[in-house]
Design a protein around this nucleic acid. Structure first.
Length: 1021
RNA sequence: GGGCGUUUAGCUCAGUUGGUUAGAGCGUCAGCUCGACAAGCUGAAGGUCACUGGUUCGAGCCCAGUAACGCCCACCA
C-alpha cells in the first residue's frame, strides 16, 4: 500500500516538478505551422525591486491561460522579460549610493554609474525570474528579454529612426517637471502632490509713467516670490465686467439649488464676487485699457519693464484680479506666454540654483532666494501683505524633492496620426479591451493627441541616436553619408544646427570630415522601449519566423493603471512598425488592496511578498487563491498579517502596528522584528513574514484534493485498465460523469471569457461538494466488493484524471504530483477506451465536455437523494442521536419517487447511519418518530425511546408557521389576475405546483404535530 | 470639475436573459478521532440586497435620483 502523508507537501512538489518540466522543454515553443499559436508577452516587471502580490496575480492569470491553451493543443508561447525602468531604477541606485557611500552620480561618472545600475539589474532580474519560477510560471526562458538588451536596443533605434525620418519626432521647448536632485524631467505620473503650509505674498509692481486717473502700481499675489525674477508680463482679464457678472449669475443659480449645508459657503462666495464688482472692477477695467494701450509696469529688483497684457487666464474673481506671468516656470503662465508672444526667461540652473538671469540672486538656492527677494521688496515698500496658506506642492516621486517647472529642450513624438491609428484599432474591434468599460479611458486619453515627450536627462536608458553638428553644410553631410540609407538629418532652426539620426551604428565624432559631431546625451523615456515589447521581443525589425508566426499576440494581461502609458503606446507602435495590432485582446485584472482598501506598497509596510505566501501556503494555494478572487468588477482586498516566527500565529496588521520595528506576538508573547527594524537589538530578533489569511481556504482546498487523490491511490491496487460498458455504470457513476461533463464545459467557457473566479468556484464546488462528499463516499463500498471493484477503480481513476487536468492551469504542482502517482498506479486510463496517460499533466490534453454524458434524469434523482439524506442527517442532529447509533426511517412518497430512491438505499447507511425500512404511498408514521416534510416526500425516523418530544413539537410548530406564511404569499400571488394572465404559462404552472407541494407539506406537518401533541406525558424524555 | 467602480450574512465576496425559500468561504454555535482528509466531517444560527421613487404580473438584477466609500484624469496665481 502506498504511504502518502496526510498533508500535501507543497515544498517538495515544487522542488521536483519545476525542474522536471523545464528539463523536458515543455516551456519552450517554436513556430509550428501544424498548430495554431497562442502568445502572451509578459508585462515586463521593473528591475527596481522584487515582485509583489500584484505581480503574482498578473503572472498567475497569464500562466493559467498559457497552460490551458497548451493543453488545448495550441502552440503556446509566453515571452518573459524585465524592464529597465529608466528613472525608477537610476533613482534607487543613486539613493543607495548616497546613503551607503556618500557619493553622487557625478563622483562616478556616466560609465561608472551605469555599471552600478547594471549590477543592480543583474541582481534583481535574477531574483524576479526566480520568483516567477517559484510561482510555477511556464515562460519560455530561452526567449527572456530585457528592454535594454541588444535585441530591444535595435528595435528602439529602428523605431526612432523611422519616426524621425517621417518627421514624427521633433525637438522643442517645453515646460517640464524638473527634478533638481536627479536633474531630469519627470513625467506627470511620476509627480505626487503634497499639501504643505506656505504663504501667499502680495506685491506691488509700479506702473511706468502713470497717467491721471490711472493707478500708480498693480498688486499681484504669489506663492513663489522668487519666480518674479523671471516675470515677463502682468495679466489682467480682457473683460472683467462680463466675467464677474457671469460668475455671479452662476453662483446665484447654484445657491438656489444647493442643499442647505452648502448654502453658507456659496453665499460667502457670492458676497465676495459682488464686493469685487464694486471695489475692484473699476481698477481692473482701467488696467485692461492700459493693457490694450501697451502700457508697462516696472519689475522691481531686476528693474525690467514688462507689459500689461489682457488674457483670460487672469481671473477677476481670484487673488488680486491681476496675475504675474512667469512663462518659463509655470505651466499656465507658459500658455499665456505662447498666446501673448512673451519672452520666456529661465532663471534656474539644472541643480535648482538661480542662474545669471536672476541678477544679484545668482547662485542662490530657491528657498534662499525667496527669503532675499521678499526682504528686498520689503525694503522697497512693495510688499502689501502676507497671508498663511496651505500650498499643494508638486514633488518628484523618484527623489521625493519638490518639482521645479522648467523650460527646457526636449524630444517629442507627434501624436496626431499615431493616436488616431491606435483609437481606430480599438473602435473597430481589432483590439478588444476587457472588461469593456476600460475602453472609454483609453479612447479619451488618446483623443487629446498630446505629443509624447520622450527625452529624459538620465544616464540609464537608450541614448537618443541623434548627433548634432553646427558647422557643416548640407552638401558636406550629403557627401559624408553618400549611399547610406541609415542616416538622415534635419535642420534645427531654433538652435542653428543639424540633427543627424543614425539607424543602426553610432556615428564617430569625425564622421563628417572637418566637423565635429556631438551626440545627444539624453536617453529615451522607458515607455518608449516598453511600447515596442510585443514585436521587439519577437525579433523585429527582422522578419523573423517568430514575428510571422506569433505576432499579433493573443492577449495582453495587465493592470488598469497603465492602459494609457503602456497599452495605448504598444498599439500605436505595433501599427506603425508592423502594420498590425500587437494583441487581439487586453484583459484588465483587478488591483490588490490591503484590508483598508489601500494599495500595497513597501513604503507603507503593507506589501505581501509572494514568496512568503508560497513558503507558508504553497504556490498552488497562492495561485488558486488569486484566481478565486479575480472577478470582473471587484478589486481584491487582502487583510495583511504578520506570521509570528516563534509560533506561526497570524497577527493582524493594522495601520498602527504596520510600521513598527518590533511587535510582540499576542499568542506566545515573544517579540519579532519587521522590515522596519533598524536597531541592532531589533534586527537580532527573528523577522516575521507578511502574509494574508485569504490563502487559507485555497490551501485547505489543495489539501482536500490531495486527500481525495490519496484515497484514490490507496484503492487502486489491482487496477486493470479497460473500457466500461454503459450497463456497468451505476447511478452515482452516471451522475458524476454527467456533472463532470457540465463542469468541463463551464470551466472551459469561463476561462475563455477570463472569468477566473467562476472557473475556480466551479471546480472548487465540484471537487469538494460533489466528488469528495458524494462520489468518493459512495464508491467506498464497491471498492470492498471484488466483483464491483474493477469498474469502480476505473471510474475513480478517470474522474480524478479529468479533474486534475481541469485544475492543472491553476494548481500546477499538486496536479502534476498526483498525475505522476496516478501514472504509476493506473498508467492507462479512460472509460470509453483506456489510453496511456501523458508523461506530464502539462502536456496532457484539455478535457472535452461530452454532451452525451449529460443526464438530467440522473441529476434529478440525485438531487432527491441528497435532499432526503440531508433531512435524515438533520433529524439525527436535532435529536442528538449518538453518531455511532444506527437509526431506521420510512418514507411516504409516490411510486415514481420510490423507484428513484430505492437504488440509493445502501448509501443512507454509509452516509447517514440510517436504514430505510419502507418506501411508498402506504407508509404509515410510527407512533413515536421525528419527521421531515419535503415536497412529495415525508420522512419518519423511528425514535422510540430516543425522542426529545418537546424539542420535536417546538420544531414542528415553527415549521408549520413557516409553511403557512409561504402558502399565504403563494396564494396571494396566484390570486393576482394580472400575474395569472400576463406571466408565461410555464411560470404560472410552476407557482401552482409549488403551492400544491406546500399545502401537502403543511397538512403532513399538521398531522404529525397533532399526533405528537396527543402522546401521553410519560413517553416524553 | 470630468469619468469609472463599489454598496448583498459579523468579515471577504458570488449572484447568468427579471421568475420557487438570495448563495459560498471565513468567523460563530452544537455534535463528531468512522481507515482519504481536524487544513476534516455533520448540523444549525445569521440577510429590510445602502436609501428614495419608477417600470413590470413579478426587481438584489432594469430606469431615475440621493448618500457613503474607493480609483483614475484634469485643475488649484
Amino acid at each position: 500500500m502506498l504511504d502518502l502523508p496526510k498533508q500535501y507537501d507543497h515544498q517538495s512538489a515544487q522542488k521536483r516538478w519545476y525542474p522536471f518540466w523545464e528539463s523536458r522543454g515543455y516551456f519552450h515553443s517554436e513556430p509550428d505551422p501544424a498548430k495554431r499559436p497562442f502568445t502572451i508577452v509578459i508585462p515586463p516587471p521593473n528591475v527596481t525591486g522584487a515582485l509583489h502580490l500584484g505581480h503574482a496575480l498578473n503572472n498567475t492569470l497569464q500562466d493559467i491561460l498559457i497552460r490551458q491553451k497548451r493543453m488545448q493543443g495550441f502552440e503556446a508561447l509566453w515571452v518573459p522579460g524585465t524592464d529597465h525602468a529608466g528613472i525608477a531604477t537610476q533613482a534607487v541606485v543613486e539613493r543607495r549610493l548616497l546613503e551607503e557611500e556618500g557619493k553622487t552620480r557625478h563622483d562616478l561618472g556616466r560609465e561608472g554609474l551605469v555599471g552600478r545600475i547594471w549590477a543592480w539589474k543583474n541582481q534583481y532580474e535574477a531574483r524576479i525570474l526566480a520568483q516567477l519560477k517559484q510561482m510555477g510560471c511556464s515562460c519560455d526562458w530561452a526567449r527572456t528579454r530585457f528592454t535594454l538588451d541588444p535585441v530591444c536596443a535595435r528595435a528602439v533605434r529602428h523605431t526612432f529612426f523611422r519616426l524621425f525620418q517621417q518627421r514624427l519626432i521633433y525637438r522643442g521647448k517645453r515646460l517640464v517637471n524638473w527634478d533638481t536632485m536627479l536633474q531630469t524631467a519627470v513625467a506627470d505620473d511620476e509627480v505626487f502632490h503634497e499639501t504643505v503650509p506656505g504663504h501667499f505674498w502680495y506685491f506691488y509692481y509700479p506702473v511706468i509713467d502713470p497717467r491721471p486717473g490711472e493707478p500708480d502700481r498693480v498688486m499681484i499675489a504669489t506663492t513663489r516670490p522668487e519666480t518674479m525674477l523671471g516675470d515677463t508680463a502682468v495679466a489682467v482679464h480682457p473683460d472683467p465686467a462680463r466675467a464677474l457678472e457671469r460668475i455671479e449669475r452662476e453662483l446665484e443659480k447654484k445657491l438656489a439649488e444647493a442643499p442647505e449645508r452648502e448654502k453658507a459657503d456659496l453665499a460667502a462666495e457670492l458676497d465676495e464676487v459682488r464686493r469685487r464688482r464694486v471695489e475692484l472692477l473699476p481698477e481692473l477695467l482701467t488696467l485692461r485699457d492700459m493693457a490694450h494701450d501697451g502700457r508697462r509696469v516696472m519689475l522691481p529688483l531686476v528693474d525690467r519693464p514688462i507689459p500689461l497684457v489682457a488674457d483670460e487666464w487672469a481671473k477677476p474673481e481670484m487673488g488680486t484680479g491681476c496675475v504675474k506671468i512667469t512663462p518659463a516656470h509655470d505651466p499656465n503662465d507658459y500658455e499665456v506666454g505662447l498666446r501673448q508672444g512673451l519672452p520666456m526667461i529661465n532663471i534656474l540652473n539644472p541643480d535648482g540654483t538661480l542662474n545669471e538671469f536672476a541678477g544679484r540672486y545668482r547662485g542662490q538656492a530657491v528657498l534662499e532666494a525667496r527669503q532675499n527677494v521678499v526682504a528686498d521688496l520689503e525694503k522697497l515698500g512693495l510688499v502689501a501683505k502676507i497671508e498663511d496658506r496651505q500650498i499643494d506642492l508638486a514633488h518628484s516621486d523618484r527623489s521625493k524633492t519638490p518639482i521645479e517647472p522648467l523650460l527646457t529642450d526636449q524630444w517629442f513624438v507627434r501624436m496626431e496620426r499615431l493616436s488616431q491609428m491606435a483609437m481606430d484599432a480599438v473602435t473597430s474591434g481589432r483590439v478588444k479591451i476587457l472588461p469593456q468599460r476600460y475602453t472609454k479611458g483609453y479612447l479619451d486619453w488618446l483623443s487629446e493627441k498630446r505629443d509624447w515627450p520622450i527625452s529624459r536627462q538620465l544616464w540609464w536608458g537608450h541614448q537618443i541616436p541623434i548627433w548634432y553638428c553646427k558647422t557643416a553644410t548640407e552638401d558636406e553631410l550629403k557627401a559624408a553619408f553618400r549611399g547610406r540609407s541609415d542616416v538622415v538629418w534635419q535642420w534645427d532652426g531654433d538652435h542653428r544646427q543639424w540633427l543627424i539620426c543614425a539607424e543602426e551604428e553610432d556615428l564617430a565624432p569625425d564622421a563628417v570630415p572637418g566637423h565635429e559631431l556631438r551626440r545627444e546625451n539624453d536617453v529615451l523615456d522607458t515607455w518608449f522601449s516598453s511600447a515596442l515589447w510585443p514585436h521587439s521581443t519577437l525579433g523585429w525589425p527582422d522578419a523573423t519566423p517568430e514575428l510571422g508566426y506569433y505576432y499579433p499576440t493573443s492577449v495582453l494581461v495587465t493592470s488598469r493603471d497603465i492602459i494609457t502609458l503602456w497599452v495605448a503606446r504598444m498599439v500605436l507602435t505595433g501599427l506603425f512598425n508592423c502594420g498590425d495590432v500587437p494583441f487581439r485582446e487586453v484583459f484588465i485584472h483587478p488591483k490588490i488592496l490591503d484590508a483598508y482598501g489601500e494599495t500595497m506598497s513597501k513604503s507603507k509596510g503593507n506589501g505581501v511578498d509572494p514568496l512568503d505566501v508560497i513558503e507558508k501556503f504553497g504556490a498552488d494555494s497562492l495561485r488558486f487563491g488569486l484566481a478565486y478572487l479575480t472577478t470582473e468588477t471587484q478589486d481584491i482586498r487582502m487583510p495583511v498579517a504578520f506570521e509570528c516566527p516563534h509560533c506561526q500565529a497570524l497577527i493582524e496588521q493594522t495601520k498602527e502596528n504596520r510600521t513598527r520595528p518590533r511587535i510582540r506576538c499576542v499568542h506566545c508573547q515573544k517579540d519579532f522584528s519587521t522590515q522596519w527594524a533598524q536597531k541592532q537589538a531589533d534586527r537580532a530578533l527573528p523577522r516575521a513574514a507578511v502574509v494574508s489569511e485569504r490563502f487559507e481556504s485555497a490551501r485547505n482546498f489543495c489539501n482536500k484534493l490531495w486527500n481525495a487523490a490519496r484515497f484514490t491511490l490507496m484503492n487502486l491496487e489491482g487496477y486493470t485498465p479497460g473500457a466500461v460498458a454503459e450497463e456497468e455504470l451505476r447511478v452515482e457513476d452516471r451522475w458524476v460523469l454527467s456533472r463532470l461533463a457540465t463542469v468541463t464545459g463551464q470551466v472551459t467557457e469561463a476561462l475563455a471569457a477570463y472569468q477566473y473566479a467562476d472557473a475556480a468556484r466551479t471546480l472548487y464546488g465540484f471537487a469538494w461538494d460533489e466528488f469528495c462528499s458524494f462520489y468518493v463516499e459512495m464508491v467506498k463500498g464497491r471498492l470492498q466488493d471484488p466483483a464491483a471493484r474493477p469498474v469502480a477503480q476505473r471510474l475513480l481513476a478517470h474522474v480524478l484524471d479529468t479533474l486534475l487536468r481541469l485544475l492543472h492551469p491553476m494548481i500546477p504542482f499538486l496536479t502534476e504530483e498526483v498525475w505522476q502517482l496516478l501514472g504509476q498506479a493506473a498508467p492507462e486510463r479512460g472509460i470509453d477506451a483506456a489510453r496511456p496517460a501523458a508523461a506530464s499533466i502539462m502536456i496532457a490534453p484539455w478535457p472535452e465536455a461530452d454532451p452525451a454524458r449529460r443526464d438530467p434524469e440522473i441529476e434529478e434523482r440525485f438531487a432527491r437523494f441528497q435532499e432526503v439524506l440531508r433531512a435524515v442527517r438533520e433529524i439525527r442532529s436535532r435529536q442528538n442521536v449518538p453518531p455511532r447509533q444506527s437509526i431506521e426511517f420510512a418514507a411516504r412518497c409516490d411510486a415514481a419517487t420510490r423507484a428513484l430512491l430505492v437504488p440509493m438505499e445502501p448509501y443512507f447507511a454509509s452516509m447517514a447511519g440510517a436504514r430505510p425500512t419502507a418506501w411508498g404511498p402506504e407508509v404509515e408514521a410510527p407512533a413515536i418518530s421525528a419527521n421531515a416534510t419535503l415536497p412529495g416526500i415525508e420522512i419518519f425516523v423511528d425514535l422510540a425511546g430516543l425522542i426529545d418530544l418537546d424539542a420535536e413539537i417546538a420544531r414542528k410548530k415553527d415549521e408549520l408557521a413557516r409553511l403557512d406564511a409561504r402558502i399565504a404569499t403563494q396564494r396571494k400571488k396566484l390570486a393576482n389576475e394580472n400575474f395569472v394572465q400576463r406571466a408565461p404559462a410555464a411560470v404560472v404552472q410552476k407557482e401552482r405546483d409549488t403551492l400544491r407541494d406546500l399545502e401537502g407539506q403543511r397538512d403532513a406537518t399538521a398531522a404529525v404535530l397533532d399526533r405528537l401533541a396527543s402522546l401521553p406525558q410519560g413517553k416524553r424524555s
